[in-house]
Amino acid sequence: MGAADMVRLEDLHVSRTLSGRKHVLSILVENRPGVLARVSGLFSRRGFNIDTLAVGPTEDPAISRITLTLDGAVHPIDQVTKQLHKLINVLKIRDMEPDDSVAREMALFKVSAAVENRAEIVQFAEIFRAKIVDVSRRALIVEVTGSHDKIEAFESMLRPHGLLEMVRTGEVALARGGD
């Protein structure tokens, strides 16, 4: 039977669909009205949950970058990217490998800071390389940038002190290296 023997049905397997980890997708889209609605609409329609989402301009004014994170334990990332590629305005999608990319998030925390615990908060801020960006009689606003985990850690430190409000940007990421 010759060459045909090289593909035996019992040797055919399918690849796993769930990666089991968090993914950061960097999506380059045409900067056109409604593009974000198309992307977010696709996610809700297909039942994909976005954990964070950040949108902004790129070096090319005609192109915007959408960075989003989602859970690869719940969603088959391959199917998500293939669906995204079907959107005509989506130009490029990169699934950012943790080792080959730099991902950062920025957050602002407003903490109630009576005079007696201010020092402690300032100390935390120093450890986390955060900045106090606003000071008022009852509260401080602290700005912190870093990996998702660092921000989570910082938040858990601040919480016991009375977290009044917070805002996080969602992760943005770039691939390392020159390409």
Binding site: M1, A3, A4, D5, M6, V7, R8, L9, L12
Partner: peptide, 8 residues
Amino acid sequence: IAAKAVAN
């Protein structure tokens, strides 16, 4: 590969 799988 598909052709070979069909052949088998």
